[in-house]
Computed example of a mutant assay.
Amino acid sequence: MFVASQSKKYLMDQGVVMMSENVLAKTTELNNGVKMPIFGLGVWKTNNSNAANSVFTAIEKGYRLIDTAKQYGNQPGVGAGIQQGLLKTGLNRKDLFVTSKVFNGDVGYQAALKGFKDTMNQLQLDYLDLYLIHWPVDGRYLDTWHALEELYHQGKVRAIGVSNFDTERLQDLMAHCDVTPAVNQLEFNPLNQEKDIRQLMQLQGIQLEAWSPLGGGESLNEPTIQKLADKYHKTPAQVILQWDIQQGVITIPKSVHEKRIIENSQIGNFELTQEDQAEIAKLDQAKRSLWYEDFAWHDPQNPNGISDVIDQWDDTGKFLPKNK
């Protein structure tokens, strides 16, 4: 087993660049000048109780970016975790960067404005740092965007953006918007690198944010990732997350376990070489786990059909972090 000094010498001998930056303190500047943490916590497929605990733990351990959505059905838990995290750490609301998303059942101008109020009530907040259109519901996303523009101009959200927009829909939105989206949140991981739309986003100054950055765990088992984990003395997850950061991608891995929440953020002390990044780039299969055809609203015969089902969880109803 390597001791710390031996491990560092070994890595330097192997041509590994050692870093000292805390990834939780690193930010990127969005196209409207707002600074956004480049690394944070996601809570998809997390019930309210676990969301409250994971958000509380993340804030306590230094995370400042929290990402949720009405679709996830856990905004009340996230809100409770935020309030308890602020209380425990002595931080202020302005120290956090909170993102939520317009629910598919709330698309359209008036519905989106009402949905925003619901989200604020559930999160126990009076403004959002970033508000995204969760999915581009055909025939509705332009009106929804105009609602987000109004919220932005009113100062109720600091930045607005989209999620899961492909090239065609993003170009359509850009042709009809007054405010350029600041972010497009996409499924992004070694097996799905979204190379085409990233070129368009770079031209427009739109920041890529990765959901499912670990590819639902499938990427972790790739031999290339395993080999690099051995080389850098890191976990496969840490290798992938560091690769995301070096790509300039905002990254929000989900976990409900304190050990994993801490471990995921411990990626500021190494840097992948260009050759290693190129090896990961070769893994791209454009392999999405969820796309338009998986939703009832994406029906060519009924483009305005909307699925209004929110994820439901078997909760106790008590969202406060346990034993805190």
Rank of each mutant, 00 (worst) to 15 (best):
I306W: 06
S255M: 10
V23F: 11
D95P: 06
K322N: 02
D178S: 15
M1F: 14
G15S: 11
Q266P: 02
T144N: 03
I59H: 04
E150V: 12
K35N: 13
E218I: 10
L203A: 15
K156E: 07
V107I: 09
F116T: 06
A112L: 08
Y63V: 10
S219G: 11
L86C: 08
G108T: 09
D166A: 12
T224Y: 03
I250F: 00
N323T: 12
T251S: 03
I262L: 13
D118I: 12
Q247S: 07
I250C: 05
T27N: 15
W297D: 01
K61L: 15
S54L: 06
I245A: 06
Q312N: 14
Q75S: 09
G317E: 05
T46F: 10
A80M: 15
K35D: 04
E218P: 00
E168G: 00
F97I: 02
A25E: 15
N164S: 12
I306D: 04
T89G: 01
D13T: 10
D118T: 13
A4L: 13
P136L: 02
Q185A: 11
Y292E: 12
T28P: 00
M36W: 04
P236Y: 01
L151I: 00
R140E: 13
K26S: 14
F295E: 01
G73K: 10
Q199C: 08
N53L: 08
S255K: 03
V98C: 10
I160S: 01
L173W: 09
M36T: 06
N121E: 15
G115T: 08
N164V: 03
Y72W: 07
E21K: 13
L208A: 04
M19D: 14
Y109W: 02
G155T: 06
L123D: 04
G15D: 13
D172N: 15
K26I: 12
M36L: 07
Q277A: 08
V98H: 07
A286Q: 15
I267C: 07
M12Y: 01
V309N: 09
R64D: 02
S219K: 02
T224N: 02
T89N: 05
D308G: 01
Q277D: 11
G33L: 13
Q6T: 13
A58Q: 03
N221C: 00
L148K: 07
L203V: 13
V3R: 14
I66E: 03
N50M: 03
Y141H: 05
K282A: 07
K227C: 08
G217A: 05
R288S: 15
I250A: 06
N74K: 09
K117Y: 09
K231T: 10
K287G: 00
E222G: 08
H233W: 07
D178M: 13
L113A: 10
L65I: 05
I245D: 06
L113T: 09
L241G: 03
H153N: 14
I206M: 06
K231W: 05
C177T: 09
N164Q: 12
A69K: 06
V239L: 03
Q247D: 01
L11W: 04
N104P: 10
D106S: 10
Q204T: 01
I206H: 05
V3H: 14
A58T: 04
H176K: 06
P321Q: 09
V107H: 12
D311L: 12
K45S: 10
T89H: 09
T167C: 12
V137T: 07
L208E: 03
Q238S: 02
A52F: 05
F56K: 00
